[in-house]
Design a protein around this nucleic acid. Structure first.
Length: 831
RNA sequence: GCCGGAGUGGCGGAAUUGGUAUACGCGAUCGGCUCAAAAUCGAUUGCCCUUUACGGGCUUGUGGGUUCGAGUCCCACCUCCGGUACCA
């Protein structure tokens, strides 16, 4: 008999799908569009095309493709597009090294990705393919930027920002990990620069509230976003410094207004803008300046280091505590951050461990204002600092009140005095979107001496990225050197003007690509509203958990902003999210430097795409990670070959024919197994994509077919059963191994498996006449008995006692309790 | 430190509501086919004990508890992984 030859099979089916455009779906108004058919938008995160796709891509698209196929066969019109996130630093850094234009390298990578996706047999609607670096796409990225600009959601301002010296660009807060650049790992430094921002903070509350609108997202992703947004409720309270030539108000944010009476000192961040004024011409001036300079030189990582000793300098000034009129001394210290709150804090060492540490170092008074003791955090004889709840003391008229109760009253009182009010603070900051780099979408703004900052009119879009010679960043965008491009005229007055030379963060590109797929060739608009309304939201989004904060939060923000502008009808882009786990090799993250990468191409070449895909789905639950094993791929390849040989043999040895309605013996056994497998695979899909057990079920079906087939080929009823089992196995494996599934299914039925509805288990065949019942004595397994499925309590007890293995354990003992679970178990308790 | 997730054979991993622990795969051992090997088909495979059985005992990170019965529920602890951290 011939052998399983994946290469030939896969090529053949790929040609069919390409030729017949099998996976293309129409938009409303186009031929073939059926408004009655339910839609499903299945989407995997688009890849950044660099070199060759890696196993992470294979996993993502294998999982997504299985879902797409499953839904199609349940009658959904499935839209399943693909594109490339093709702007970005790696191509540009490569250009700096080699001089090769980023476009050239990028398009070569895209070609390679496209080829491999076809070789993997992913069911993509190629008519919707897009790449974010093309003018056809970024024209609309710029168009969206202008809409945000018009509505005050894109703005330019000077602010302290994170600068990566190696990549020579600013970064968004989300792109700084532990004080280091997310991309290259270089320590970032703070700079004051004028930059473009998107006002994502306007959406902080809605980004939090609308978690309720999501159908199914992993809880930990929601938690990560929630923590990132970092909403905290508290109060803004104003402390006043009025002495000598200074009269300044210092608002602070605190979550603990109930501890106001315990404030014994006051701290400003080293970057606080009023610091110079406070110490100018005072004895503290030199020491403060020295301290501030020292901190400025330190990296974010050093400053945030664990167990860092508290440092600071006294300013020789004091502020008045609005609740009791006390004068408390002012300090500058680096444990207060300018980016959070107001850059100033009231310090309550009695009830805050950081303030307590500072008070210890500077020998400042520690005052208790809440009764209570928390043994875990207490550090001194009095049990301070105490972070918990209790009645207030040393708090004037509030003494004796519970601190929670006092919290509200204190706020009310402060409000009436005009010294404070309830306030909400967020950790989230506006999204810094400008980059001083070349390979991104130019920001469509022009600077005119007369008119100032002028948006490029829509009809002049796209602002095309010019060809340049030198890609090396010089502290400003390489675009600044393209003089001919920079020099333009003002769209408003026609006077000479200069273009904005910064480009957009590539996360902007990927914040709306899932909408462009819905109408990708539209030259009149970013998308047609009817098309968007038809397909959105994405019903199933699949991607790596590493994007839990960045991409997913930006895309949510974009969707809400676009909805507010009347351009979209949904508030949330991704109704269901599936976060796949990472594949490791030898227990470690794959990396070129470790030399432990797995190249999917190599395995596809050796075993076929079906084996590689099915193995990845079989490794373990897809949301968890897994360690790549060559033997594992071989095992799955063996299984697929076994199924192929079974198909070939069944085609030869049986004729077409449906199994009868009342099969018996082994025919019934095999049909029952096939129906069990249908049931099991279906449930595993529906219960969170448990593909590993689904594939195991098909393996069991194939194993049983091998075990029983020789005894069944002889009679027509048996032959029909084997044929049914094999066809079913092909049908069920199809979402994972689409080529082999199509091949075997066609051989046995003459038809195309993807045009067939997903099989439904026959309940008659799922039930068996007899069941195995376990018999325990004192909870210990002693025997297994075959009993009629319907056997009642008394009958089961009788059968159980009849077992010699059981009675041996009952000898001379008294049965005190009998537990019977019909169809499952009998437990006899003896004494 | 805080917030998640996970600890099951030699390995990856299965186990509806508490009811046969170790499905499926890998690896290993043995056998059929073969001159031989590969491929393939089949059998065995949690650990320990007297391999005499149709025999007994033990086993889901550790220690306790609830229950006729716990991988699953409760309490305490240990380890690993992921996220996050002077956020006032």
């Amino acid at each position: 008999m011939a052998n399983y030859e994946p290469k030939a099979i896969e090529k053949r089916w790929q040609a069919v799908w390409a030729q017949e455009k099998t996976w293309e779906v129409p938009n409303p108004g186009q031929p073939g569009f059926d408004p009655a058919k339910p839609k499903s938008y299945v989407l995997e995160m688009l890849p950044y095309p660099s070199g060759e796709p890696h196993v992470g891509h294979l996993k993502c698209y294998a999982v997504g493709d299985a879902i797409a196929h499953f839904r199609r066969r349940h009658g959904f019109e499935v839209i399943h597009p693909m594109g490339y996130d093709s702007f970005g630093l790696p191509a540009e850094n490569n250009a700096i090294k080699t001089g090769e234009a980023p476009r050239v390298a990028t398009e070569r990578s895209i070609e390679s990705f496209r080829r491999q996706f076809r070789e993997w047999g992913i069911s993509i609607d190629w008519s919707r393919e897009l790449a974010t670096h093309t003018p056809e796409y970024y024209r609309w990225t710029q168009w969206i930027f202008l809409r945000l600009f018009e509505h005050g959601l894109a703005y330019r301002t000077e602010a302290p920002v994170q600068w990566c010296p190696k990549d020579a660009t600013v970064l968004a807060n989300e792109q700084v990990i532990d004080g280091r650049c997310e991309r290259c790992g270089t320590e970032v430094v703070q700079r004051n620069l004028e930059q473009w921002f998107f006002k994502i903070t306007d959406y902080a509350d809605r980004l939090l509230a609308d978690f309720d609108r999501l159908e199914s997202w992993p809880e930990h992703v929601i938690t990560m976003q929630r923590n990132w947004i970092g909403r905290s409720e508290g109060a803004e309270v104003t402390f006043r410094c009025q002495e000598r030539e200074v009269d300044l108000d210092f608002p602070v944010f605190t979550t603990r207004p109930d501890t106001l009476f315990g404030a014994t000192f006051f701290v400003l961040a080293p970057e606080h803008p009023e610091l110079g004024r406070l110490v100018a011409g005072t004895p503290a001036e030199d020491e403060v300046r020295e301290y501030v300079n020292r901190i400025a030189r330190e990296s974010a990582e050093e400053r945030g280091a664990e167990d860092r000793e508290k440092t600071g300098v006294a300013l020789g000034r004091s502020v008045v505590n609005p609740v009791n009129g006390e004068q408390i001394p002012m300090y500058v210290a680096d444990y207060v951050l300018m980016e959070y709150g107001t850059g100033a804090i009231m310090a309550v060492p009695g009830h805050d461990s950081r303030d307590y540490e500072f008070a210890q170092v500077f020998d400042l008074p520690v005052k208790r204002v809440i009764e209570g003791q928390d043994p875990d955090s207490a550090r001194d004889a009095e049990g301070l600092p105490f972070p918990g709840d209790g009645p207030l003391v040393n708090s004037g008229r509030f003494d004796g009140k519970g601190n929670r109760e006092a919290y509200a009253e204190m706020l009310e009182w402060l409000g009436s005095e005009g010294r404070g009010s309830a306030s909400v603070n967020y950790r989230l900051r506006d999204w810094l979107v400008s980059r001083q780099r070349y390979w991104g979408a130019p920001i469509p703004i022009v600077y005119c001496e007369e008119c100032g900052m002028v948006p490029v009119p829509d009809e002049q879009l796209p602002v095309e990225l010019p060809e340049i010679e030198d890609y090396a960043p010089q502290g400003k965008s390489p675009l600044a050197a393209a003089e001919e491009w920079v020099a333009t005229e003002c769209p408003e007055c026609g006077a000479p003007a200069r273009r904005e030379t910064d480009t957009m963060d590539t996360f902007v590109d990927s914040s709306w690509y899932f909408i462009r797929y819905l109408d990708p060739r539209n030259t009149e608009a970013a998308w047609d509203r009817e098309a968007a309304d038809n397909w959105l939201a994405v019903d199933q989004y699949i991607g790596g958990v590493e994007h839990a904060i960045l991409h997913l939060m930006y895309a949510r923000f974009f969707t809400k902003a676009l909805a507010d502008l009347g351009l979209l009808g949904v508030q949330e882009p991704f109704a269901n999210l599936f976060a796949q786990g990472m594949i490791t090799r030898d227990g470690a993250k794959m990396s070129k430097s470790r030399g432990n990468t797995v190249s999917p191409g190599e395995y596809v070449e050796r075993y076929g795409a079906d084996s590689a895909r099915t193995y990845i789905c079989f490794m373990g639950p897809p949301e968890r990670g897994g360690d790549w094993s060559d033997e594992g791929v071989e095992g799955v390849n063996r299984f697929l070959a076994r199924l192929w040989r079974l198909g070939a043999e069944v085609e030869e040895r049986t004729g077409p024919g449906e199994p009868g309605s009342t099969p018996e013996g082994q025919a019934r056994e095999l049909l029952a197994k096939a129906n069990w497998a249908i049931e099991k695979v279906t449930r595993d899909f529906e219960r969170g994509f448990q593909f590993n057990t689904a594939i195991a079920a098909v393996m069991e079906l194939v194993n049983d077919s091998y075990r029983l087939k020789e005894g069944l080929y002889g009679d027509p009823e048996g032959a029909a059963a084997v044929r049914f089992a094999t066809t079913t196995a092909a049908s069920l494996i199809f979402p994972f191994a689409p080529h082999l599934g199509s091949e075997v299914f066609e051989r046995l039925s003459g038809e195309r498996v993807w045009e067939h509805a997903w099989p439904v288990a026959d309940p008659q065949l799922l039930l068996s006449d007899t069941v195995t019942v376990v018999v325990q004595v004192n909870g210990k397994l002693r025997d297994r008995i075959e009993a009629p499925a319907e056997a009642a309590r008394e009958q089961l007890l009788e059968l159980a006692r009849a077992s010699t293995k059981v009675s041996a354990h009952l000898d001379g003992k008294e049965v005190v309790k009998e537990i019977v679970v019909p169809g499952k178990l009998v437990n006899l308790v003896v004494r």
